[in-house]
Design a protein around this nucleic acid. Structure first.
Lengths: 168, 168
DNA sequence: TTGAACTTTCAAAATTTACTGAAAGTTATT
DNA sequence: AATAACTTTCAGTAAATTTTGAAAGTTCAA
């Protein structure tokens, strides 16, 4: 297999993985492109390599920056912006975990907690089962919350070499 | 808040969570409906409560059964099928983890492993960086694979009360 | 073997989501 | 202040996904 083929296949696969997880295909493809780029790329590089419009490239690059998966790099003497991906896959995973927890998991936990406050507090068979479900989701979510928070904290500490702080 | 409102909001929220994770909104809503149902529901119940067509209900119920999140129940004396969700949230989570690992994570690992076999084995700066990326994704994925497999095995053993088997 | 009760399939329609490209906005340079 | 280099926005369009509903398929009882 030639390098170019492999590159295209990786970008393709990363894009498919993205869509399967509710992430815009193009955003995932740009991420793939930057992950394997030895040097930071500019918007035109991304547009050309993925054959996408300026607007599309710009929007998805911003989104990747929001997720902290990509950094803006300014080269001395150059007007335009360059983009560089976080290359450490473990850090990438932690970014994604944190982001999704914040955007999707936390709101769900809040909703479920609120939904326990129904007027008829389990008087009917239906509302009793409902409360039961809300409670078990809440219990599970709280454990998950702690586990993820702990995981992210442990990783951060591992990276900064300050694992000891955890035991203070 | 009235029970009916809370019920609708839960179904709604579970549906949104689904779409955010690349799962069909209706499939997630049916799942929500069954999670809070005290008794198994039939296709017509689902159609009526969610205001969806028979085809849609049928397809998404099959999909939920594929995922092992829902079981078909046959009531004596009744021709039609009833559907019942797995209620234990931990089991639900493990089902989803297993399913997604199998459908999305494993294929990616295979792809990435294959993509290391490029003709020019890192001769250019570009292909060297590419190989580096493939390797680090592979290393990460293998660890993730082990962690998830272990997690699922531990859960299964916890449920069947045979935790000891792990140490044989 | 007929028909009633129910399930499955799938082409076409509806809906949702993503993309384009041109215009407006910004920033730096002369 | 005018221009050049670049980025952002967003209305309109295109593409992908989801849904419908009617026809075909299945199963069982009489």
């Amino acid at each position: 297999m030639k390098f170019e083929e492999a590159k295209q296949e990786f970008i393709q696969s990363w894009g498919v993985l993205g869509t399967q997880w509710g992430i815009n295909r193009t955003m995932a493809q740009i991420h793939a492109l930057l992950l394997i780029a030895p040097d930071a790329l500019c918007a035109d590089d991304v547009m050309e390599q993925l054959q996408i419009s300026r607007g599309n490239a710009n929007m998805n690059l911003r989104e990747l920056i929001d997720w902290k998966l990509v950094n803006k790099v300014l080269k001395p003497g150059e007007r335009k912006e360059f983009f560089q991906a976080e290359k450490d896959i473990w850090k990438v995973a932690m970014c994604i975990v944190q982001e999704r927890k914040k955007k999707e998991f936390d709101p769900l936990l809040k909703t479920v907690t609120d939904l326990k406050e129904i007027e008829d507090g389990g008087a009917s068979k239906e509302s009793a089962e409902f409360l039961e479900t809300m409670l078990s989701i809440e219990r599970f979510a709280l454990k998950g919350d702690k586990a993820l928070t702990g995981l992210v904290a442990a990783s951060d500490n591992w990276f900064t070499g300050t694992l000891l702080k955890l035991f203070k």
